[in-house]
Amino acid sequence: MAEPLHALTALGRPEPLDETIGALRLTERIDIALASLAVRKGREGDVAAAAAAAGIPLPDPARHAAGPTHAAFWVAPGMWFLEAPFATHEDIVARLRPVFGDAASITEQTDAWICLDLSAPDLVPLFERLCAVDLAAVPEGHATRTVIEHLGCYLIVHGRGAVRLLGPRSSAASLVHALQVAAASLG
């Protein structure tokens, strides 16, 4: 068997980004495995039961919820993204298949996104320069898709000072640049 391949981050670097710009700490997360879970037609009950048994939350529209190993957020009617630790769930699809059987369609999404955690005492001034989400008004656990500098991103609100962003991997550099510039412009 051939040698294993080495991995690079979405930014094309060996190590994840961890940067502080003014009050903002920007941390790239490469330790999260991601998969989409979509209910097959008429199998809502089966999926809900399987998820409950496995401790996997399946939150309502525009919501994120965390369970013991998996967290999940709603992305579309009948579809969620599930998060799990990469170290134990690199093969997240293979691990989820037995849980849901043929009741759900599951697709690996780990490498489709750059995952960034943003923290600051107050992220409202930053996000009001980035997207239309009313960060000051949305509740904790709010999860939504939004547009940042033309890029469709998922935004998960863990608090006024803690936000997770999932942006398209191929545009990771553009997204990070936009965040850096916006953070620097807050002066």
Partner: peptide, 10 residues
Amino acid sequence: LWYHEQGDRS
């Protein structure tokens, strides 16, 4: 018909 392309794809 409108498509929520930058949203939930509905």
